[in-house]
Write a protein that binds this DNA or RNA. Structure first.
Lengths: 267, 267
DNA sequence: CACGAAACGATCATATACAATCAGATACAA
DNA sequence: TTGTATCTGATTGTATATGATCGTTTCGTG
């Protein structure tokens, strides 16, 4: 059985039972304890399950807290250290009072956490990002009009007469499926469309891509390197992987995951 | 076997099983490992499959939906029996498959609860309504573009080039601040603006107003009685209060709070 | 508080997967 | 037929994954 197969089987089981033990998985996967623990740990690092002693648990808690007065509360943060580190570095590029655009995605979602104290004009096509911003910050939030696509939870309109035509952002923060010498790559045509719309509404494009994205390829190029001004990645990136971006004149920021871990422990 | 044949066979298998190992392909293709790896790599470069250790995977993995989990849960329902009763009556006016518009407000928020099983196209300017619909139903949800106004939690654009220009709803469900012989009254100019925009996108206007609204007055008239087709209120309304609407040709539905209470106890 | 069992992380040897290289096979054109 | 280009499979060295082992930590129980 391939690593990937085990991973998706574990995820499926966790989803069904909301908790699985290493012993259960032992039989079902036919792998050794060590491997199962490794699998659970990697899935936990990605934030897809929660590591508990003796097994794994669903990220989404079973008994969700209720809060009267606010229309919703937030679930546990699923952002992993890499994304947090990148998000923190990204937040340092933002100056108070400016207007920014945030494209939907898990990496950019992590950015929200660091925007609580800012006073910004924020446009985002991500429903979850808008929701979290609404609940945890005082920033002004604008959404493009359109239908909510559930898979990606983004708001996207098939029409051109978009409300965002009246928005201009100093910076666009976006994640990606893959990032390499061709530029930003995505796997889902919907995401391409959404991203393309946002690209028109800003000058400064900041790509937040954890180091695994640098080795990821796909069929669809959203935009070339010439459109990118800054790339933020984590210290898992090899120096030679970043050279192509640097020679293209792109500012490359490497966020330290270890430093982020320590900051996290302090809190 | 030709290269082309191998490629399409691999794609077919990946499509079917969403993941195949090199070993599987070894038997099925009768080619050497090296060739199979080459095949997978070229397909991956074209973006037709995703390269994983030990084999190939479908580009869009099955567990993608979990990428962006629902970052919020909903608050306890603050709707009182009157609103529930009215909402239930309102939901009975909806036929499956149609497209409706829901204006923001606490009364219309109560309606969401009754839309879980429907298969509707829903346009709403209310962020909480959209959030709850997203979390608890499979309806298609569309939002107008614009900024989120925190006081009312509605999305509203100051511009005219609105995405909702491309939406048409069979019915508009709206609450109100006050309802009397002048028509629908509101206290907040923002709400007036939002409501006015929605009124243009439908023919059939259904006002959900608990009986206290019939005695409530304000400065701003959103629209006259001639624009209203149905009014739903609770049995706290006096008969003579409803006469003015009936004589204006409006269908008046009185929802029984007592009946709602009993239904509630059963659940 | 002490104890034992279970779970854990780290380490290591082994197994597996991988990319790179090269030589032979095949297809095609002159 | 000959020469060339391409494809294929075998081989190699390297990178990565796996399972066994062992010492440590954690948890529950007495």
């Amino acid at each position: 059985m391939l690593e990937r197969e085990r991973h998706s089987l574990i995820l499926k089981l966790v989803e069904e039972r909301s908790i699985v033990s290493v012993g259960d998985l032992l039989d079902l996967l036919g792998a050794s304890e060590a491997t199962i623990r490794r699998d659970i740990n990697t899935l936990a690092e990605r934030g897809e399950v929660k590591r508990i002693r003796g097994g794994a648990e669903a990220v989404r808690p079973r008994h969700q807290p209720h809060l009267v007065g606010m229309p919703f509360v937030l679930s546990q943060d699923i952002s992993v250290p890499q994304k947090r580190a990148i998000a923190r570095a990204a937040s340092e590029l933002i100056t108070p009072g400016e207007s920014i655009i945030i494209n939907g995605g898990t990496t950019t979602f992590a950015l929200v956490e660091f925007l609580a104290d800012h006073d910004l004009d924020i446009l985002t096509n991500s429903f979850p990002i808008a929701a979290k911003l609404l609940a945890t910050s005082r920033n002004r939030i604008t959404l493009p009009g359109g239908t909510i696509f559930r898979e990606q939870n983004i708001v996207l309109s098939p029409f051109d007469n978009d409300t965002i035509e009246n928005f201009w952002g100093n910076k666009l923060f976006t994640g990606c499926y893959g990032l390499n010498r061709f530029g930003i790559m995505e796997a889902d045509p919907l995401v391409v469309q959404a991203q393309t719309k946002l690209l028109k509404r800003t000058e400064d494009v900041i790509v937040m891509a954890d180091s695994s994205k640098l080795r990821q390829k796909s069929a669809m190029i959203v935009t070339g390197l010439d459109r990118i001004s800054t790339i933020i990645t984590d210290d898992g990136a090899r120096a030679e992987e970043l050279d192509v971006f640097k020679t293209a004149g792109i500012k490359v920021i490497v966020a330290s995951v270890r430093a982020e871990d320590e900051l996290q422990k302090l809190a």
